[in-house]
Design a protein around this nucleic acid. Structure first.
Lengths: 346, 346
DNA sequence: TGCAGCTACGCAAACGTTTTCGTGTTGACA
DNA sequence: TGTCAACACGAAAACGTTTGCGTAGCTGCA
């Protein structure tokens, strides 16, 4: 087994100095053509590749960006990552992943682990626990040390950094407007508790759409789901709530859910109660994922363009790293949403 | 903005040498208690953290493992990653991700990018194109340079390295046996072309199960899907094939598909043709994902225990890195599959 | 007083690179 | 023959650590 070859080894072998080898490989005309070709041939033969770590140490940059997300087994986040990876790779950067699993502690540990020189900057989506605790010291420290952060999707407004968000309010307004325009009169909303920013904004969009159509919102049509670590339990509780809602409010003819799973769950219950989708009840979900595409009937959704979010985040971070933009100027990019009409709307 | 503080800066500030600072921080009793406490207090105040890159260079190990997968927007792979990440983190390692997008070139580039000192070892699943081309030089080179590789799921048998695979044959045999035991007589198989190892093995399991039940396989019941970069097209073609199959073979009462999406597609067509699931036709899919769990009716599947695969892969790699096992001894771990009975089987 | 031995620290090398600067040799030209 | 430029290369520093070894200064004992 031949170990990795270094400049020093080449130098020794060819009886020249390390600096000569280095210069020869970079084709410096300081070195005679003779020596250059000799060195280059030797390097090629032994498959020489400069050691990245040494370069990082010397250049004070690693050409690696750190991504911290709450979970990876999630269509949205994995799409964002693929966007980040695409843009990063095309600009010569690597991507290193940390998972917070929605835990504050793991988020802090991951950030500390990566902030000590391993990476040049962060792209992250804040964990739910952090949002709940409102403890942002780790973000402040990182930024203070001169390491740029780009937050996406779940951001903290009060922190001065670049952000990429989707227009949650407008997106859900689009969805609800679509339902209204197609003739729905009594639209139920399935959302999360308000402390999840995203849930709150999407609720606002729902309300605004109703208002524009001069429809008075009824709180009895709104389910605010309490999130649970155990998804099974969360969904079971939701099933009961939806079932009760449909039993009580017989006039419901539209459902808007802030995520795919809630929408699928609602659809399941509705179907089991004999409703025809979309004739009796139309359904739209926020977040476009695999479930929506392949459910039967396939679900109409608001797409968040996750890949684009990832690309945009990476672009913003790398631009900052390469000083293509001013360091102290922060910017928030809003990604548009798109209504994808499938088979649960008329 | 206070930049990252280094040993040198602390040394200068406290008017001692760098080595003294280093030793003081590591609590070497070579240094007086006085100096130690002084240095430690100062370091704490300025939030000193040793630079990882410098450590990596010195120690010749990065405590980072590279993972290369064909795609990340895929339930199975993202689950594997979460398993890797969990095990790696708990042992103090970082995880850096590369995506090959099923392309040979991207796989090679990713490996070369990471192999130059950025990581200590690889965990990877081979891209389809590589399997097709059968060009494995990049794997050989990496291993030759002394960098260990663990392959999972899509492995290359002829390469000497650790492997983690699922028992594809036994898994699909379990599925088909279940169908047979529940009374199915004419079981269709939806699989991939044989050059995808996984598809081949799963086909074998199907055949073995039939054989054990003294049922003669009929090639007219088998659909071998030609994979397509464009999933939409692939699925559309599949829809037509399934439709034709069901029209021609009226006696089909069971379907086994080698992945979720094929199963869902089959189910969709069957339902549209008026079949009752599972009364008229039972369905089982390999690979347990979100689709199966939340489809209506929910799909019975063979679970591959992806998280466990990830954990196991990481364990094997790190054990090798930390020389807890012999370097030249390679081992193939077989992960068990489990039948998860849901609503598409009787 | 002289010396052994201990304490507490600094020096320097090492990891692999890149780059600046210095220098020996050669050749040309006055 | 003397001077100078051009050429081709080497030495050394730098990035931030860790660690083996050397040593100055002191204490204590003969």
């Amino acid at each position: 087994m031949k170990r990795k070859v270094t400049l020093k080894q080449i130098a020794r072998e060819l009886d020249v100095s390390v600096s000569t080898v280095s210069k020869a490989l970079r084709n410096s005309k300081e070195i005679s053509l003779d020596t250059r070709t000799k060195v280059q041939a030797f390097a090629k033969l032994y498959n020489y590749r400069p050691n990245n770590i040494a370069l990082s140490l010397k250049n004070k940059r690693t050409k690696t960006i750190g991504v911290i997300i709450p979970e990876i087994v999630h269509h949205f986040f994995s799409k964002v990552i693929s966007g980040i990876e695409k843009e990063a790779n095309s600009r010569g950067y690597n991507v290193i992943i940390g998972l917070s699993n929605e835990s504050f502690d793991k988020e802090v540990i991951n950030i500390e682990m990566l902030a000590n020189g391993s990476i040049d900057g962060f792209i992250l989506s804040v964990s739910k626990e952090t949002l709940l605790l409102q403890d942002y010291h780790h973000f402040y420290e990182t930024i203070n040390q001169g390491m740029p952060i780009v937050m996406f999707d779940r951001v903290v407004n009060e922190i001065a950094c670049d952000k990429v968000v989707v227009d949650d309010k407008l997106g859900s307004k689009k969805a609800v407007t679509k339902l209204l325009d197609s003739g729905c009169k009594n639209i139920a909303l399935i959302t999360t508790k308000d402390y999840v920013n995203v849930g709150k904004l999407r609720t606002q969009g729902y309300l605004e759409a109703l208002e524009e159509h001069k429809i008075y919102p009824k709180s009895s049509l709104i389910i605010k789901v309490e999130e649970n670590k155990d998804k099974e339990v969360e969904i079971e509780t939701l099933e009961e709530e939806i079932s009760a809602l449909l039993d009580k409010e017989k006039t419901i003819d539209g459902i808007f859910a802030v995520n795919e799973l809630y929408a699928i769950t609602a659809m399941k219950i509705a179907i089991s109660k004999g409703y025809k989708i979309p004739d009796d009840i139309s359904i739209i979900a926020f977040t476009d994922g695999v479930l929506s595409k392949h459910s039967i009937p396939s679900l109409s959704t608001i797409s968040q363009h996750a890949v684009e979010m990832g690309e945009k985040s990476a672009t913003m971070l790398i631009d900052k790293l390469e000083e293509l933009v001013e360091e102290e100027k922060y910017h928030t990019e809003v990604i548009n949403t798109t209504l994808i009409e499938r088979d649960t709307t008329r």
